[in-house]
């Protein structure tokens, strides 16, 4: 907490009720924005732990970074539309599922908090989700890389050969994604992502992107644009709900994060365009795995301070 206030140019955050260094926040917003621009993810899973580490109340951190995600996603969405890299139909299905999942997640979040098990569930979810997902992605991407080096190109997917869940009822055609599959697994994924996102206080695009890439084999270019649309909608909903239900959106903090984020995202998007698909997958895998390991280390290391003080829940 001490070094959150270090350095010049301090500003007092009215809702978080503490001063922070503007330059530090701008830099953090830019860095996270850059990463989110590259991968087409919201960056919430990076920003939330960083803000909490700075000493901000978790409720304020979770609520306010949604605003930054929304801003970065606006830029990303606009540029994706300009490049015609959005599958509108797919985005619609994802947003619909995401909203249902978010509502369910918010309800479950409250139930866990009443039971006093929220912290535990959050940390364990972070560890399991991120390490498993990261390892899977990394293995996949390394296998790709090795087979390319050996010259024995792995067989690409053959036309007509699809996983079984593509053939479930309610099949929909998504021409832009070269996808003809049942809407049920897609909706299910979107609900699950919205649910997990609401509990962990993240946008969830980092789950959505690999899901679309690996489960539904949507082309990389379309995945990023489409997930940006979904992130934008979810983040806007999150800002409204958080302000309305928890009163924990700090507009001053939001402004600083947005300013750093939108410009960072611009450079990120540009860098992302020059990335090859294999490199892209490899880097995203490393990033997700790193966050998972960081939480795992926190879980198994003997803490330097075993005690923690948190404000007890007050009903608003």
């Amino acid at each position: 907490m001490a070094w959150a206030g270090a350095g010049a140019l301090q500003i007092y955050l009215p809702i978080a009720e503490m001063p922070v260094s503007i330059l530090l926040l701008l830099a953090m917003g830019a860095a996270v924005g850059f990463v989110s621009g590259i991968f087409g993810i919201g960056g919430g899973f990076l920003m939330t732990p960083l803000l909490i580490f700075l000493g901000l109340p978790p409720a304020v951190a979770v609520a306010t970074q949604s605003a930054q995600i929304a801003a970065s996603a606006t830029t990303g969405t606009l540029s994706a539309f300009r490049r015609d890299a959005v599958d509108g139909r797919l985005a619609l299905v994802l947003v619909a599922g995401g909203f249902c999942g978010t509502a369910l997640g918010v309800w479950f979040f409250a139930a866990l908090r009443r039971a006093g098990q929220l912290d535990l569930v959050i940390v364990i979810s972070y560890v399991t989700l991120f390490t498993v997902l990261g390892s899977l992605m990394l293995t996949e991407s390394l296998r790709d890389y090795l087979s390319v080096r050996r010259g024995t190109a792995r067989p690409r997917r053959r036309a007509g050969h699809h996983p079984g869940y593509f053939h479930w009822p309610l099949r929909m055609r998504f021409p832009r994604s070269r996808l003809y599959a049942s809407a049920i697994p897609i909706l299910g994924t979107a609900v699950a992502v919205g649910f997990i996102g609401a509990i962990l206080g993240i946008g969830g695009a980092f789950i959505m992107v690999p899901a679309l890439l690996y489960l539904f084999r949507v082309p990389t270019a379309v995945v990023i644009g489409t997930s940006q649309v979904q992130v934008l909608c979810t983040a806007l909903l999150a800002v409204l709900l958080q302000a309305l239900l928890n009163g924990s959106v700090d507009p001053i903090l939001a402004l600083i994060l947005i300013l750093g984020g939108v410009f960072g995202a611009q450079f990120g998007a540009r860098a992302g365009r020059n990335l090859r698909a294999e490199t892209f997958r490899f880097l995203l895998a490393i990033l997700v795995l790193a966050v998972g390991l960081r939480f795992a280390i926190e879980l198994v290391m003997r803490p330097t301070e075993a005690f923690s003080v948190t404000p007890s829940e007050t009903r608003r």
């Binding site: 605003a67 930054q68 929304a70 801003a71 970065s72 996603a73 606006t74 830029t75 969405t77 606009l78 983040a235 806007l236 800002v239 409204l240 302000a243 959106v249 507009p251 939001a254 402004l255 947005i258 300013l259 939108v262 410009f263 995202a265 611009q266």
Partner: peptide
């Protein structure tokens, strides 16, 4: 706040 996000995102 949501409006601010949209505006700055568009501006950028």
């Amino acid at each position: 706040t949501a409006g601010m996000s949209l505006m700055f995102g568009w501006l950028a």
